[in-house]
Design a protein around this nucleic acid. Structure first.
Length: 911
RNA sequence: GGGGGUUUAGCUCAGUUGGUUCAGAGCAUCUCGUUUACACCGAGAGGGUCGGCGGUUCGAGCCCGUCAAUCCCCACCA
């Protein structure tokens, strides 16, 4: 006997192992059509969160479906080395052991990092197995695998040789915690409540200034607080008072008449009294703050530009870790934020702090470490993006690469039309070390390795005396995205070995499933690399998932602690339950407000399927000679379900073709729960024999057909819920060893028109049944009390076999065709046919009259509104003839109902 | 500051070229039911001026304009 409730935990591990043992997920090139997905490689240090859960489930649904459709499905798993994040974790781990990174050599540090990676890395890949992900694990790749590492190096060398990569001093985003530069895309700007400090700078030679200031200042029409500006000083506004020691000038707008008297003057920086010039530049906004701007070229990108224009010195007063260096002269060694507090106090004491205002402004944060980004001037490597981006922009605009949903095309375009150069160097050790080698005179040799670099020096520069010892490799590593942008190519070794059988077979891949957050970071760059290195797009479709949010709409994150552990959820609801739960409300590109209720619904669905199987498996089958179901009702039910299945399959296929995964699941869910369980199974269910206490046997034909239906339904649901469907599919009939639903045929709609007649008949049938049940409910009559039904129709006997079903489903004792309404009967109307249910007790005439009147009102109103439409000449003239015809039909239907209702009313009133 | 999305039932969302009784689904709520697969269930019910206003049209949830709310992206006026 099968258990009453489905227990996922018992079977999930069993089937997953079975799939692995039978190598059902492995793929090698063959003559079949390939279907390829590369996983967005999760951070190697990562653990599974709800975003992965959603993303991986969608990929698995697509891959499993393709596999069942007979394609050579290949889902490549792997992880990303995530340089900053991983290095930070390793540094933290070392710190716990009392080891500082600075005490280690690069090689020693990397040894620790690899040790750490081997130990903790890739947990997430194990977790993916728990959710049923059908990855080809033999293909697991890591962005630092030798082959992938080498691919990255090759690409760097190649792009350098093509003149696309250059090295230069630029203002970059500095992460003082990670102590590395990060790209513009890795900076998240957030609005932060800050303070705007108004600081007074003394004008040098202020005695003269007083004399000059005989000219009345009021002429300028200045609206600024008189305290803020005096003839012998200028007040500037800043949110970063700790950088004043690095000021190179104070700028005012040349058109700002308030400051005419200061042109050509110099001022003194408070506290340190260094003298700096007043410069004129139209960049300065006159109506912000005081109209005076402190210019700090080392610590602000705009100031840096100003500095270049005015030939100002660059004074960098920050160390790499964000503390003040000796150039600051004061507060040396203090962290920038502590220094800010301290200097405000000092400025206040010295009388230079004029006032403080609350101020909201945008501050950049490091995506990886969440540290406040410091604009910093440094020597970095850059990749020119302008030309590379062109084919990638075109591909998306012309839908060669299709973004799903397409609304993201706008975003993509705005970024790709004017891409900024990509800062690809990082001041870290964990990653691909930049293959640039420096000669002692600073000459740069870019080559695959030192030996190659030396060979180049010797052969191209004819410096045969050079040795490897004379070359030093660049200390920096490459941005992690500089390796992941090659992912769809490098996992098939298509960079090093561009004509190999694998890349030629699997590339371009089919679908990419990822989050919109990394559309620029990753997706766009993969497309760029795809065109540059394969001359072809890396994938056809990009399905962009939403962000998983909690009930309050917050993004689920580890730091907020509002994300449930997916593995806990799986324990609780089963992998299939969680998978379907995730998909129930996740249209592409829309955020997913996650609610555990959805997992519960998923679990309930599993249980429903389980019990449906329990029901069917408990049936006994009639001996052959006993024949089939006498009334033919089962045959008709079969005919109906076939038609229903067919139309639903078409619907599901349509949803899938549009990547409407949620809708495809919804259709599957309804087909199984409502159509198959609630209707079909109830219709064919054998009667219960009260004497024997068992159900009657079912005829062989109906039974076999039902089992076939079940099998097809399991196949249909398998991409969504692989475990329970495999379990039942294996139970349903004897299978050969190694056979699996994973590679069974996915149901396809039968060709030809669906059986419209039977579908229409059953719609009427279900309406009759629910009307009778409704009467039962409203009259509080229990389901065990059988009720007689009378029908008055213009075509007697038209219900034929359906009568048996009405009797069974609505517990009707007998059906009679009548020409007069029986006494004591309550009635309902369906398409002009009138149905009467004889109630044993007295009929409440008043209630019946009220109901009939209400219905009559509605029908008359409805008829009138349609008539009004039809009497409008413009409507009849302009509307589609079909539409007009339908409207006429509506009137006819309404007329019939109205006539019937009027008659009912007459009778009820005894007229 | 620019660009885009969203706004439909208490909640989360469907609603495909404007036209069938088009105002929908799931969840939640309420009523009834220990029926013989399933209470992780069954049978029913209530609930919305489709964000506001204006326009186009014979006809608007759908098209256009405008306003409002909200979210996202880009842009670092200190």
């Amino acid at each position: 006997m099968i258990a009453k409730t489905y227990s996922p935990n018992d079977i999930e591990a069993k089937w997953y192992q079975y799939w692995l043992d039978n190598k059902l997920f492995t793929s090698t090139p063959d003559e079949r059509e390939p279907y390829t997905i590369v996983i967005p490689p999760p951070n190697v240090t990562g653990v599974l969160h709800m975003g992965h859960m959603l993303n991986s489930t969608i990929q698995d649904v697509l891959v499993r479906k393709a596999r069942m459709e007979g394609k050579n499905a290949c889902w490549v798993p792997g992880t990303d080395h995530a340089s900053i994040a991983t290095e930070a974790k390793v540094v933290a781990m070392l710190k716990e052991r009392g080891i500082a990174k600075t005490d280690l050599s690069r090689d020693e540090f990397l040894a620790y990092a690899w040790e750490w990676k081997e130990k903790y890395g890739g947990i997430i890949l194990q977790q993916l197995r728990k959710i049923g992900a059908s990855c080809d694990w033999d293909r697991t790749r890591f962005t630092m695998d030798p082959a992938l590492y080498e691919s990255v190096i090759d690409v760097f060398v190649d792009l350098y040789n093509k003149g696309q990569i250059y090295r230069g001093v630029r203002m970059v985003n500095w992460d003082p915690q990670g102590k590395t530069a990060v790209s513009d895309e890795e900076v998240i700007t957030k609005e932060v409540q800050q303070k705007l400090y108004y600081l007074k700078y003394e004008v040098v030679g202020s005695q003269e200034s007083i004399v000059d200031s005989q000219e009345p200042m009021d002429n300028s029409g200045a609206t600024i607080d008189s305290r803020l500006s005096t003839p012998d000083s200028i007040v500037i506004a800043t949110v970063r008072p700790e950088t004043i020691m690095a000021d190179a000038a104070v700028a005012v707008n040349p058109n700002d008449e308030r400051y005419n008297h200061l042109h050509g003057k110099t001022v003194r920086i408070p506290l340190i009294n260094r003298e700096i010039p007043i410069i004129l530049d139209e960049y300065v906004t006159m109506d912000f703050g005081t109209g005076g701007l402190k210019v700090t070229p080392a610590h602000d990108p705009n100031d840096y530009e100003l500095g270049i224009r005015h030939n100002l010195p660059v004074i960098d007063l920050l160390n790499d870790d964000g503390t003040l260096n000796e150039k600051a002269q004061i507060l040396v060694g203090m962290d920038r934020f502590a220094a800010r507090k301290a200097i405000v106090k000092l400025l206040d004491e010295s009388g230079n702090l004029v006032k403080t205002e609350e101020y909201t402004s945008n501050v950049g944060f490091s995506e990886r470490t969440n540290a406040v980004i410091e604009p910093k001037l440094s020597l970095q490597w850059f990749l020119k993006m302008e030309d590379l981006a062109k084919p990638a922009l075109k591909a998306v605009m012309e839908d060669v690469v299709q973004l799903v949903p397409p609304k993201f095309k706008n975003m993509y375009r705005s970024w790709m039309e004017a891409p900024r150069d990509w800062c690809i160097s990082r001041q870290l050790w964990w990653g691909q070390q930049i293959p640039a080698f420096y000669m002692q005179d600073g000459t740069i040799i870019v080559a695959k390795n030192k030996r190659e670099a030396l060979r180049k020096v010797q052969h191209e520069k004819l410096l045969f005396a050079m040795t490897e010892a004379d070359l030093t490799q660049d200390e920096d590593v490459l941005d992690t995205w500089f390796s992941s942008w090659l992912w769809p190519i490098s996992v098939f070794d298509g960079i090093r070995n561009p004509d190999n059988a694998e890349i030629n077979y699997y590339y371009p891949t089919n679908d990419l499933v990822t989050a919109p957050e990394i559309l620029f970071f990753w997706v766009a760059r993969m497309i760029i690399a795809g065109y540059e290195y394969r001359g072809q797009e890396p994938f056809r479709n990009v399905y962009l998932t939403g962000i998983v949010r909690d009930k309050q709409g917050r993004k689920m994150s580890k730091s907020l602690g509002n994300s449930p552990d997916p593995l806990d959820l799986i324990d609780q609801y089963g992998a299939d339950g969680v998978r379907t739960g995730m998909l129930f409300s996740s249209p592409a590109g829309n955020d997913l407000p996650f609610d555990e209720k959805l997992c519960e619904q998923g679990r309930n669905f599993c249980n429903k399927i389980w019990n449906a199987y329990r029901l069917v498996s408990g049936w006994t089958i009639k001996e052959k000679e006993e024949g089939k179901n006498e009334s033919g009702s089962s045959e008709l039910a079969v005919r109906w379900f076939k038609a229903k299945l067919n139309t639903t399959l078409l619907e599901i296929e349509d949803h899938f073709s549009k990547f409407r995964i949620s809708d495809a699941l919804q259709s599957t869910y309804k087909l199984i729960w409502d159509d198959f369980c609630s209707q079909y199974l109830e219709l064919i269910k054998p009667a219960y024999n009260t004497e024997t206490g068992t159900s009657e046997p079912i005829d062989r034909e109906t039974y076999d057909t039902t089992i076939n239906f079940f099998e097809r339904l399991m196949a249909l649901a398998h991409p969504f819920m692989p475990f329970i469907t495999e379990e039942i599919w294996q139970e349903i009939r004897e299978r050969k060893p190694g056979e699996s639903l994973c590679v069974a045929k996915y149901p396809t709609p039968r060709p030809g028109q669906p059986d419209a007649a039977v579908l229409a008949d059953f719609e009427v049938l279900f309406e009759i049944i629910s009307s009778i049940r409704n009467i039962r409910n409203s009259k509080q009559i229990g389901p065990k009390v059988a009720l007689p039904l009378s029908i008055r129709t213009s075509s007697p006997g038209r219900f034929g076999v359906l009568e048996v079903m009405i009797q069974k489903m609505a517990n009707v004792s007998e059906i009679a065709y009548v020409s007069e309404k029986p006494d004591n009967a309550t009635s309902f109307l369906i398409k002009g046919d009138e149905f009467y249910v004889d109630l044993a007790d007295e009929l409440d005439v008043a209630v019946e009259v009220a109901n009939a009147e209400k219905d009559l009102d509605y029908q008359t109103g409805f008829r009138d509104s349609v008539m009004k439409k039809l009497s409008n000449e413009k409507f009849v003239a302009n509307a589609n003839p079909d539409v007009v015809e339908r409207e006429r039909q509506k009137v006819a239907d309404a007329d019939a109902k109205i006539a019937a209702l009027q008659e009912t009313l007459r009778r009820l009133r005894g007229e």
